[in-house]
Amino acid sequence: MNTVIEPRDERSQPARIVAGYPQTPWRNPRQPLVKRQPTLSELSGPLEVAKRVKLLGGDIAGYGEHQAIGQLIHLRVRVLDEDGAPVGGAMVEMWQANSAGRYSHPNDDDHAPPDQNFHGAARLLTDQSGSFELRTVKPGAYPVPTKDGWWRPPHLHFSLFGKVWLSRLVTQMYFPGEPLNMQDRILNAVPDVAARESMIARYLPPAAEPYNALVFEHRIVLRGRAATPAQPP
């Protein structure tokens, strides 16, 4: 199994130090990063993390009297590699604010109310077509409480495990047509317009099912490819 890790186009990745995001200069390296030729150690990686941590599923909006407050959404995501091949069996972690913009997390303050029916954490595996689905509520925007802060637009956080160590990804997904996308310092830390747009989900027109949820689709592209060796027929 050969995995090829291509160098990335820097313009498709965020700046490490972001103007107006005050923690970034204290936490990001100043020395040049060290270039290396990947070896087996970096071109292998954990494939069975779900045997060490607990899956939670992707249906986190609740039902009936326990349904979370907010706009119900269904999100269909495909996880692909750089060659467009599906990444099946990949563990995905998603976390998000509730519809008022409050996280179920001790670090969040009391700027918005918690929702006792919503904890905002999903953890699942992609199927063999690299797909997974979430049933959740659309997160609210929230203010970043720093001096001269800004508002984060509605977004979902994702952490994904690919086939190798170098394909591990932490990213965020945004919603189309949100005016706050324009001023978000994290989304706009990615210089290339097309790369930024690839982080925004696509709205799908209404269909018979689900009748009560907005439906979005999204694509996440991990690095590298675990090419299956050719086999005789």
């Binding site: 990745q13 976390w95 905002g120 932490v170 930024r196 592209v221």
Partner: peptide
């Protein structure tokens, strides 16, 4: 395909 851009984990990674 261009690999999806990375982003910060943020302060609210679920414990």
């Amino acid at each position: 395909m261009i690999p999806t851009g990375e982003a910060t984990l943020g302060p609210f990674f679920p414990p």
